[in-house]
Nucleic acid binder design. Structure first.
Length: 158
DNA sequence: GCCAACGTTGGC
DNA sequence: GCCAACGTTGGC
């Protein structure tokens, strides 16, 4: 099993939106970056876990945990000319973009802020924290994953 | 709103 | 294949 981090803007699709979905499940569509696409298509497996990260907001940080419940499959929003994620180069015969389905596992009562992540020495080398990183889908190492879970636990039971 | 950092595009 | 211009991301 592998661990990941997936970014979304809470104003567009936040963890509360996922919570409100039937079966708390939604497709993670609209990714239009090749490196992130490769993680979605080739890296993620059903059963993998990911942090749900809120970006471009007042308090950026990790808001909860999701599970990959369907591995990579073609992102059909690229084929809708009226949609905001339309890409005329992609077709059902030759899809360019991929998505996965995620299911909410748990929403953090106390989100782990980006500022808190930056302060933790064990997370110094986390991809999320490297300068200039803009990928919306990132791998997380097992030690990093466990460190963050501990941070969340201690925030929960001080 | 600003700006740094990065990815993509397209001319040559 | 190079590289300048442009667009996007995302923290602050």
């Amino acid at each position: 099993m592998n661990y990941w981090l997936m970014k979304s803007e809470p104003d567009g699709f936040g963890i509360d939106h996922l919570q409100a979905r039937p079966k708390r499940t939604a497709p993670w569509d609209g990714v239009r970056n090749y490196q992130a696409r490769n993680f979605l298509r080739d890296g993620m497996r059903k059963g993998d876990l990911a942090f749900f990260y809120h970006s471009s907001c007042a308090a950026p940080g990790i808001a909860g945990i999701v599970k990959i419940v369907r591995a990579g499959y073609p992102d059909h929003t690229a084929w809708n000319p009226d949609g905001e994620h339309f890409d005329p180069r992609s077709s059902p015969a030759n899809p360019i973009w991929y998505m996965v389905d995620v299911q909410l596992v748990r929403e953090f009562r106390h989100p782990i802020t980006l500022a808190a992540l930056k302060q933790h020495p064990a997370l110094r080398h986390m991809k999320l924290l490297q300068r200039g990183n803009r990928l919306s889908v990132l791998p997380v190492s097992a030690p990093e994953w466990n460190t963050i879970l501990k941070m969340e636990k201690s925030a929960r039971q001080p």
